[in-house]
């Protein structure tokens, strides 16, 4: 898996149309000697497999090359921004789980009532709203009209509230639906009826007995959301001018800054793989039927 990722990320550079030297010199004509010098500096004069080996060698030393535009090391650019994106993703995920589970349980317990209808309608709408548009609406309400919260940059935790809420609300929609339907499936089962029949408190049955089993499909969907939260963060960071790697990547694509693009792609790919692994482990903790060999 890791090998496949490094090959794919490396191939992005080979496949890139146009000469990277032209991009670096911003299309200005340069003499042949300068051109050859730049090619040597970037390692473009070597055959492809040697380029890959030197790329891998750089990776091992933590060297991802230099940004074509700012000339700063890619590693440094990513290191200053990566923690911000992680904070945004974690905060969004927390909001999504909190709202998703609460509304899902409410809808299941009060099924076929007004509460259920409202929750289900909002969840369906939530799956149809573009996150960046919700972000604009929240900026307008909380930042412009009521002037309650900052809408740009990341100087304090208050800057996190709007972007994390935007992403969290969107992701909560899918979680809420999943919690509702899986809890409804479980509530029908015999063991829940038995627990109620032996006189256990309804709250206890719901949260201890039913939720224990309803959580398993919920963790699946939350695991899938880990990817979605990263993808969503990329767009949301642009909306809120949030200094994370998403905003960095999108600017890098606009400027065709390929060392930076490759670096971010690699970091994001590794993050996704790590997150998927974490979800698998969590799965084992919640579901004792799964054994790790």
């Amino acid at each position: 898996m890791l090998f496949a990722i490094t090959v794919l990320v490396f191939l992005m550079q080979v496949l890139l149309p146009g000469d990277p030297v032209d991009i670096m010199t911003l299309g200005q004509p340069v003499d042949a000697a300068t051109r050859a010098g730049l090619r040597r500096e970037l390692g473009l004069d070597l055959p492809v497999h040697e380029q890959y080996l030197s790329y891998l060698g750089g990776l091992v030393r933590g060297d991802l090359g230099r940004s074509v535009r700012t000339r700063r090391p890619v590693m440094e650019e990513i290191r200053t921004r990566y923690p911000n994106t992680l904070r945004l993703a974690a905060a969004s995920m927390a909001i999504a789980i909190l709202i998703g589970v609460l509304t899902g349980v409410l809808a299941a317990v009060y099924r076929d009532t007004l509460i259920d209808l409202v929750v289900s309608t909002l969840a369906t709408l939530g799956l149809s709203v573009p996150a960046f548009w919700l972000g604009l609406i929240l900026i307008f309400q909380f930042g412009v009209t009521w002037q309650l919260l900052p809408v740009m940059g990341f100087d304090s935790w208050r800057h996190l509230i709007l972007p994390a809420s935007t992403l969290g609300l969107i992701l909560a929609a899918a979680i809420s639906r999943m919690v509702r339907s899986s809890l409804l499936d479980v509530l029908r089962l015999d063991y829940v009826r038995t627990a109620k029949a032996k006189g256990l408190n309804a709250q206890h049955v719901l949260w201890r007995h039913a939720m224990a089993n309803a959580l398993i499909p919920v963790i699946t969907i939350v695991g899938l959301q880990v990817g979605a939260v990263l993808g969503g963060a990329f767009i949301i960071e642009v909306v809120f001018a949030f200094p994370g790697i998403g905003e960095l990547a999108i600017r890098a694509i606009q400027y065709r800054d390929f060392p930076l693009i490759q670096g971010v792609t690699l970091v994001v790919a590794l993050t996704t793989v790590a997150a998927n692994l974490l979800v698998d482990v969590l799965y084992g903790v919640v579901n004792p039927q799964i054994q790790f060999s």
């Binding site: 993808g231 694509i253 994001v268």
Partner: peptide, 17 residues
């Protein structure tokens, strides 16, 4: 393993906007 929007971004990075 990767979210579709990130795949799409990577492809645009190669093809151009």
């Amino acid at each position: 393993a990767f979210p579709a929007i990130l795949l799409a971004l990577a492809i645009i990075a190669v093809l151009g906007p």
